[in-house]
């Protein structure tokens, strides 16, 4: 019984420190660009396609990479003001018979594109790299003012902890830009 109890305690401690799906060394690169009345946002999630993600994708589960993108303006006296926000999702489902990845990109629930590829690298790129997404309009932005875009990435389903499931392992990054009209 003592051995069993010790193992149980070990289990409890281990459960409390298990990492989330996203590895700790991942990083997010964000690059906003204002052009032709739109704010184009490019971002890339590095080191996200680790073995756990790969196993989860190859299990046939639909794995979603969810990116919360916010256009914000800094404030020295109060909380930063959120001007606009978008949720960009890239979901992948792998067919183990056809050995093909089907990646669906949505933006605020709208399907933007569906891609199928047999190459994992293509799937990774489709899931983690977004180039010049016209997410926000620049109308209403103050010329020559400084704004920033914050992107927060997470995966679903969560590999949440039993002891404290609210612990977030999201990855976020910000990038400033000056709106020049």
């Amino acid at each position: 019984m003592s051995t069993l109890s010790a193992r149980a305690w070990t289990l409890a401690v281990a459960l409390s420190v298990l990492p989330a799906v996203l590895p700790a060394d991942q990083s997010l690169q964000v690059a906003p660009l204002s052009r032709e009345g739109r704010v184009l946002v490019s971002f890339r999630l590095d080191n996200a396609f680790n073995e756990d993600i790969r196993t989860a994708i190859h299990s046939g589960l639909t794995i979603s990479f969810i990116y919360d993108v916010e256009l914000k303006r800094g404030s020295s006296l109060w909380f930063d003001r959120t001007i606009a926000s978008e949720k960009v999702t890239a979901a992948v489902r792998y067919d183990n018979l056809a050995r093909r990845y089907q990646v669906t990109r949505t933006q605020d629930g709208r399907i933007e594109r569906v891609d199928a590829t047999e190459r994992e690298e293509d799937a990774r790129r489709l899931l983690t790299e977004f180039d010049k997404l016209p997410l926000f309009t620049s109308e209403g932005l103050e010329p020559n003012a400084e704004y920033y875009v914050r992107v927060r990435a997470r995966t679903s389903p969560r590999n949440a902890s039993f002891v404290w499931p609210w612990e977030r392992h999201d990855v976020s990054a910000t990038a400033k830009f000056t709106f020049i009209k």
Binding site: L15, L18, D52, T55, A56, H58, S59, G60, L61, P157, R158, N159, A160, S161, F162, P165
Partner: peptide, 13 residues
Amino acid sequence: YNQLRVLKRPLEG
């Protein structure tokens, strides 16, 4: 089988 493995942790939770 693999989904169970992937979801083992939430299921355990």
